[in-house]
Write a protein that binds this DNA or RNA. Structure first.
Lengths: 90, 90
DNA sequence: AAAGAAAAAGACATAAAATGTCTACCCACA
DNA sequence: TGTGGGTAGACATTTTATGTCTTTTTCTTT
């Protein structure tokens, strides 16, 4: 599914205008991004949590060149699905 | 942030009613869940992809009982953040 | 609907990170 | 108020994440 598919589906199921749905979906994504940038996790009951994970300094590989590089410590965005969501896919 | 926090933030930033925003956010989550249940991934450019990952059969431990359990092969929901999202947190 | 731009997916070897299980407890949301 | 979400523990195995390149897909504009 693409964003357009999602927007159409939501508009169909809720009766809300596609324009408002699109704006809301885009605002949702932007809000999650900004929140995690501020290291504030987002908990969505029954769906999952968008959380910040810390990654230690790491020795990685540039596999194209077969060289070693050091990746400094950094944060990554992660999603932890809720039990309900996981159970739905099992 | 909780769902209510997100809804308030979106309503504030877009001017859309909290009721409509709440309905849209809930419908968004439900649509993503149903899509992944159907093994149809959701691609949201600039945010990330909700994808189905296959987990192989695995031997795990029940540490309370110190016994071994076989977890059968199954699907899990996963999120792959976009490069833009990852870069924002680095 | 078509075109074009750009994001995203996927492949490679290997060190680091995550995974799964159960139980008990606490917090918070609807 | 009921229930979902988060946390901790052990440990052996599985999965991820790095850069670059090519191809595919998304998404905006016309």
């Amino acid at each position: 599914m693409t964003k357009a598919d999602i927007v159409n589906e939501i508009a169909k199921n809720t009766g809300i205008s596609k324009d408002d749905v699109l704006k809301t979906v885009e605002a949702f994504m932007e809000t999650v991004k900004v929140s995690l940038t501020k290291e504030e996790n987002v908990y969505l009951r029954g769906f999952g949590s968008f959380i910040v994970k810390k990654r230690a300094k790491k020795t990685a590989r540039n596999i194209s060149k077969n060289t070693t590089i050091i990746i400094p410590e950094h944060n990554i965005p992660a999603f932890k699905p809720s039990k309900e969501f996981v159970a739905k896919l099992k």
